[in-house]
């Protein structure tokens, strides 16, 4: 059937792999992390999963997780490209 109007359908990465937008990447110190989950709660893009793994394909590097981590367990590190 022909598409009469612009209809977008849901898919991941509809805006590409936004990880490439990043200047700084979050690096988690697993030793310090107490798994409170605030980083995941506050991530605007929902790229931190239940295991608190950060999906660097999509993380835009905003640094909210680092700023909000009560333990200071996430450091923002300059991307090397």
């Amino acid at each position: 059937m022909r598409e009469r109007l612009a209809l977008s359908r849901p898919k991941e990465a509809s805006s590409g792999k936004t990880g490439s937008w990043r200047t700084f990447r979050p690096v988690v110190d697993k030793e310090t992390c107490n798994a409170c989950g605030l980083c995941a709660q506050y991530c605007p893009d929902g790229v931190i999963d239940e295991e608190l793994e950060i999906d660097l394909d999509y993380c835009k590097g905003c640094g909210i997780c680092s700023n909000e981590c009560p333990k200071g367990a996430i450091k923002m590190v300059r991307e090397e490209r």
Partner: peptide, 24 residues
């Protein structure tokens, strides 16, 4: 069957839908 209706539609796509109006 979720769809987004009338999303941002770029210069490579927009005219196709205008043509479809004329076709109809």
């Amino acid at each position: 069957n979720p769809c987004v209706y009338g999303p941002m539609t770029g210069p490579d796509e927009y005219y196709k839908f205008r043509w479809d109006i004329e076709r109809s």
